[in-house]
Design a protein around this nucleic acid. Structure first.
Lengths: 224, 224
DNA sequence: CACACTTTGAGAACGCGTGCACAAGCTCGG
DNA sequence: CCGAGCTTGTGCACGCGTTCTCAAAGTGTG
């Protein structure tokens, strides 16, 4: 029995829920039992009105004159984000980045367990990273199904990205986090989020250039 | 003498320029001299109207009935993004992720040269990664100034992030790419972009959950 | 119990970004 | 030189997200 959201939750709000979650976790460890939208906003780096509107999409979990119960709100947000359950994750492409992601501790804490590492290079197959062995891409379908993987991380070179994405989808993966610097399309019903490091630097470069040449600084806050 | 933009370029457009840049680079290698907005849209994964509107912010670089000159457009976009010059970059925090970023080839190609690696761990200082030696964080200010670093990459644990950001800013850095899972504030006139891997997975998890429980798939396209 | 104070929840206005639709402008063939 | 056929550039309408604002609803004190 999962939450029946009172209304559709806007995408911008969904993207901020993890920020609130993190802020509340840190607050909860300090034995604070209640928190105001203003304080939460400060911790999450947004403004208070946005916090209240975002939280109101989940339901009326606050108490006027008091604020929000930290424990309760934490529970509601993690339920909404699906953090109460475990998600087995596969990483495809065990290069520099793939290896770093495989060793990254931040995932496990939130219920994302990296269970499968896949690469196309025969020299890498069988090699152990942490306590996982790298599996050949020929076995992608089999391993992904065996581990019931719903979320895949794509860290291959750009040239292989679309092919691997297709294979993941064919094997039943419905969420992909794509680090490959390539446009990749997936069918309806599959989510894909893209993280491109070079693009982030290029965006910074754009604003850096403006600042350097024109005297007037154009401050720049990230949207998404 | 840099470009005098006809109008202010919307942030959403700036974020897409690198996509067009990449698509044009790949097209240019195939000796194609001209490209329509429709084709460019397909390669960049957006729609044609958006491409035309985005490019029109840079100026009227297309020819009606023909399309855009690949070489010329490439030149204009790279000038706008500041890719015609080199940006020395420093990475602070040489853990799993920092090391992966230090070895990442995708940066150099676009003019971002990683010149400085910094870490707080004395055991790491002096250790070589590629052809760079890790420098102590005590020398941050000195090294950053010596190398004239304007762009810094923050790959430290969350607890150190704000402190390191402050030090980078004090040393003259005005653009920061932040991988640390922490809210970090910088003064006006400094740009900061955040990349949080755990948050990306949590967003995927949200939509994944909706798909699994409700029959109706809620397709999900990323905004920013 | 009344009153001052705090804080939430939501209505309303505003601004930005997207996408449609079409006129303007270019090429090419006859 | 003219007309058919493309493709760009942009005016316009629409929708989403943000922020301002304020009534509603709670707490605490005298």
């Amino acid at each position: 029995m999962t939450a029946s959201p009172r209304r559709r939750i806007p995408e911008a709000t969904v993207a901020r829920l993890p920020l609130y979650y993190r802020a509340l976790m840190e607050t909860g460890e300090r034995q604070v039992s209640t928190i105001s939208s203003e304080r939460l906003a400060e911790l999450a780096g947004v403004n208070a009105a946005k916090v209240r509107k975002d939280l109101s999409y989940l339901g009326s979990y606050g108490t006027r004159g008091v604020g929000y119960d930290v424990e309760y709100l934490l529970h509601e947000i993690s339920r909404e984000l699906g953090l109460t359950r475990d998600w087995p994750v596969a990483i495809v492409g065990i290069g520099n980045l793939g290896r770093a992601l495989a060793n990254y501790r931040g995932f496990g804490a939130r219920g994302f367990r990296v269970e499968v590492l896949i690469d196309a290079d025969p020299a890498l197959v069988g090699h152990r990273i942490g306590d996982l062995a790298v599996v050949s891409i020929d076995d992608l379908d089999k391993v992904v199904r065996e581990h019931n993987i719903a979320i895949g991380i794509l860290a291959t070179p750009a040239s292989a990205a679309q092919d691997v994405a297709d294979r993941l989808v064919a094997a039943g993966v419905t969420s992909i986090l794509n680090f490959a610097p390539a446009v990749c399309s997936v069918p309806d019903g599959v989510s894909m989020r893209k993280v491109d490091l070079a693009i982030e630097l290029q965006i910074l470069s754009f604003y850096q250039l403006r600042r350097g040449t024109a005297g007037a600084a154009s401050p720049h806050e990230q949207a998404g």
